[in-house]
Amino acid sequence: MIELKGISKKFGDTQAVNHVSFKVAEKETLVLLGTSGCGKTTTLKMINRLIEPDEGQIFINGENITDQDPDVLRKGIGYVMQNIGLFPHYTIAENIALVPKLLKWDKEKINSRTQELIQKLHLPENTLAMYPHELSGGQQQRVGLARALVTDPSVLLMDEPFGALDNVTRTSIQKEFKALEELKRKTIVMVTHDVQEAFELADRICLMDRGEVVQIGTPKELLYQPVNDFAKKFLAGQRLALEFKVVNIQDIWTYLPKEIIQASESESADLSVWDAMELLRNNNQSELFVSGADQAIKSINFEQLTKGFNQYQNAQLHE
């Protein structure tokens, strides 16, 4: 669990961070979202004391971080940098093994953990002996991730971990990332300025502007209950796509046609409307079977899906 209490930081005349407070629950992923220069990186770096705040306190698992030796603190926190920051003079294997070596793990353990990670992160085996400059940008980011994950820290800080990627690669890495079992056990603070990414990965989003927190809440809350104009405008451009993403079949269950009883296979109702649409499109099916919370199974087509979604939208607006 991470807690920030009234954190402020000034660089000269720039108020980079201004009285920021939030809590990140155990195993939760909080995404810091905001325009460039709004203080996301600064906030993140104060959590592992790369930057010391001028004001306020930070607690990790109830312990004030200023009471800990910074080197020890940092060894216990995974950190993925905005600029990747791999060591150019170390091979990929050595880059990944950096913290384990500092912690004096034995060779065997380091090797097996490295192997495990490169498989999970889909890095080719032969990259281990290479140097960072020999890898593509996407591969380097995976190595950066592997380096942060290698000791399986319970807290993970990530600063635009997919920032340097083209859209196609980014989407696929995000998916792989989301599917990683070991990330689900971690308390994560992630920075991004990409709204789509925030919605894809966040449990809760902390929207920031000019060093201050504008709104903290689930993606749905941000969409449907924006606290001010800034929050509304921030999402405006991609509103529809976001809504398709945050709304799932369960949400619109009541607006879908009557149920049928028999089907051999079905999708879970956790499926977002967006994903359901993609399935219908990609698999060239006219029908999709989904099973609701009550074990009932419904068959839906594209038309029924959009209709149900629209009804749900209307209901939300009139709430």
Binding site: D71, L86, P88, H89, R147
Partner: peptide
């Protein structure tokens, strides 16, 4: 030396001496 590399070293929890000798 690239500032980001030095920062990465600090972020990994390397001590000042380790950063000097290894980075």
């Amino acid at each position: 030396i690239d500032q980001h590399v030095k920062e990465a070293a600090r972020a990994m929890g390397m001590s000042k001496g380790q950063i000097l000798l290894k980075v």
